[in-house]
Design a binder for these strands. Structure first.
Length: 567
RNA sequence: CGGGCUGUAGCGCAGUUCGGUUAGCGCGCUUGACUGGGGGUCAAGAGGUCGCGGGUUCGAAUCCCGCCAGCCCGACCA
């Protein structure tokens, strides 16, 4: 492609609304443009990269036995009501009405559509297993779209859905996908970890998130430097055994005035003690009644762990509405001995301490010297703190590390939730009906583009891995002004044709601009190999080569054929 | 949805406090000359519903009201 005709305008200034590198550089280098909050146009360069990712995903899905389909983006809301998800997904959905006022939504995902499709076609155990996928635009009206492509409202996603006769058969499909995902992200050049994710009501351990390691990620995950353990913080648990109560004699509970100090840090500072000597009491709704979760003041409560501890009772953290509905609750000053609590769940860390500072159950007051079993009781002991760096690994006991990641993929078991709701049943050998066991597998294709840009850039611009680069080679003509100029252009044209004849995708900077502009743009755009046909080199019969990622420069003979990748 | 900030040329911004003639600057764009190996120099240009609507006023980018959009923080750690 000749840059004189490429639809590209690079920007010298950073866009004002970009706060992460991938967003900043993809806009500056002319890959994407914002059209609305979380909605982007893909310019020619960007679209080429997107299609590279798409193709890698497609190849690996096909290899793993999945079949590509294309499902509708506009979906009847009625289908979502049948699955019961219209409510659950509710505000996240873009909704629309047709001329007859029938409600539709723009697909945020496609379980309903694909399940009802399969239900219509397949009815026998002989038909299974089956794995269908599509690469298609998804729409989620995010609370807060941000970080460019990383949290967009319109995004390209590969979603696959497997159908099996039972859980054992499902595991085979699942494993194929799991392995394929590793290959996809390896080929994209991402540094990633497959981490255990919360599998919620579904149970089982067949749920993994693929996290591209990145400081700008929105998810924390823990991993063990000593073994293979890795998990989203929501799903992570600490290792370590029971902690014995500390038997020291503690003076009686004593109330203290802590005016206008509803926070742990403020109370600790006011009393001149460490936050870890306080107890946090977090209010939950447990089947319509108040439940309390108790952890040391320097730790956070893991809501999902609380839910797991009290399962099957439904558990929901109190929000502003709940507190508004219960004005009698001394928010910020609740202690573990609060009378209205129907159940108290505490972390073992609470047993390891004594003489806690707790909320005194009335506004502006705390109490010191609280002791488990004397001043308050615990109904359920469970690991409910959010895992923090240095906590023992649940597998090997060594200290865990915590990193941030961008969730680029997710594989998990759906069970029979959708097959039952949408009548995807099959008949077995004995003529009995069973719901199909499903799995679903997502890859954020457009998000991968951003994640790779996050990992592959420097102060001069993007620097794509070869597999994703919009072009293989960036050819730059630097003809100068002398008598040789026409000859240099002719040589550059010839090299351009030759490179293309060898099957290279070539971006050819044939513009009449100063060399500095060309070099700066080449670094910004980030094609892996830059070749310069210039007045200097042509005179000596050479082409200059620069490797974008390392900055290494060398020279190649101008004689045909030019091999841009030669050692 | 709550709090804060911001909307002025394609992009990045000044001007708004304290209303006043023709609304500026840099980049980018056009034309010309020079330059020609890391965003070069000079000159001349084009490009604006000052987010939208209403109001106050002799006069509004500037003040007031309403709306819209964007960004940041928060929306579970009490």
């Amino acid at each position: 492609m000749r840059m004189t005709s490429l639809f590209l305008r690079t920007l010298r200034d950073d866009p004002a609304d970009a706060e992460v590198e991938s967003h900043r550089l993809l806009v500056r280098a002319g890959y994407i443009r914002r059209i609305s909050a979380g909605i982007y146009s893909w310019l020619p360069l960007g679209y080429r990269v997107l299609r590279k990712v798409e193709q890698i995903v497609r190849e690996e899905m096909d290899d793993a036995g999945a079949q590509e389909t294309l499902l509708p983006i506009v979906q009847p809301l009625e289908l979502w009501e049948r699955s019961g998800r219209a409510q659950a997904y509710g505000p996240l959905m873009f909704k629309l009405l047709d001329r007859r006022e029938t409600a539709y939504c723009l697909s945020p995902t496609a379980e309903e559509v694909v399940t009802s499709l399969v239900a219509q076609e397949y009815t026998s155990y002989r038909d299974l297993p089956l794995n269908l996928y599509q690469i298609n635009w998804k729409y989620r009206d995010e609370l807060r779209p941000r970080f460019g492509l990383l949290r967009a409202r319109e995004f390209l996603m590969k979603d696959a859905y497997s159908f099996d006769v039972d859980v054992d058969a499902f595991r085979t499909n699942y494993q194929l996908m799991y392995d394929a995902y590793h290959r996809v992200f390896d080929r994209c050049g991402l540094t990633f970890r497959a981490v255990e994710a919360d599998s919620g009501e579904m149970g089982g351990s067949e749920s993994r998130e693929f996290m591209a390691v990145a400081a700008v990620g929105e998810d924390d995950f823990v991993w063990c430097p000593s073994c293979e353990y890795a998990a989203n913080v929501e799903a992570a648990r600490r290792g370590g055994g029971e902690t014995a109560p500390v038997g020291a004699h503690v003076p009686a509970l004593e109330e203290v005035n802590t005016p206008d100090l509803p926070g742990i840090a403020g109370v600790a500072a006011h009393l001149g003690v460490e936050p870890r000597t306080l107890l946090k009491s977090i209010a939950f709704d447990v089947e319509g009644k108040l439940g309390l979760a108790i952890v040391p003041g320097d730790r956070d409560v893991n809501e999902l762990a609380v839910a797991a501890a009290l399962r099957p009772k439904p558990v929901r953290l109190y929000g502003d509405d709940d507190f508004a509905a219960h004005p009698e609750l001394p928010k910020g000053y609740i202690g573990p001995n609060y009378e209205g609590a129907s159940v108290v769940v505490a972390d073992p860390g609470v047993r390891a301490g004594s003489a806690w500072v707790i909320g005194a159950n009335r506004t502006d007051h705390h109490a010191r010297n609280a002791v488990v079993g004397r001043d308050f009781d615990v109904d359920v002991w469970a690991d409910i703190v959010t895992v923090a760096p240095g906590d023992p690994c649940p597998r090997c006991g060594n200290p865990l590390a915590v990193d941030r990641g961008i969730e680029v993929g997710h594989v998990f078991q759906l069970g029979t939730k959708y097959s039952e709701a949408l009548d995807a049943h099959y008949t077995d050998e004995r003529g009995e009906q069973h719901p199909m066991v499903m799995g679903c597998y997502g890859i954020g294709v457009s998000r991968v583009v951003a994640a790779v840009a996050e990992e592959y850039h420097d102060e001069h611009g993007l620097s794509w891995p070869a597999a994703l680069a919009p072009y293989d080679v960036h050819l730059i003509a630097v003809p100068g002004r002398g008598e040789q100029a026409a000859n240099v252009v002719a040589e550059a044209d010839r090299v351009y044709a030759s490179l293309r004849a060898q099957g290279n995708d070539v971006l050819y900077d044939d513009r009449d601009v100063s060399p500095g502009v060309k070099f700066a743009d080449a670094d910004l755009v980030g094609v892996p190999i830059q070749l310069v046909v210039g007045a200097k080199g042509v005179g000596r019969g050479v082409i200059e080569r620069k490797v974008r990622s390392t900055g290494e420069r060398d020279e190649l003979p101008l004689a045909e054929p030019v091999d841009p990748r030669s050692k």
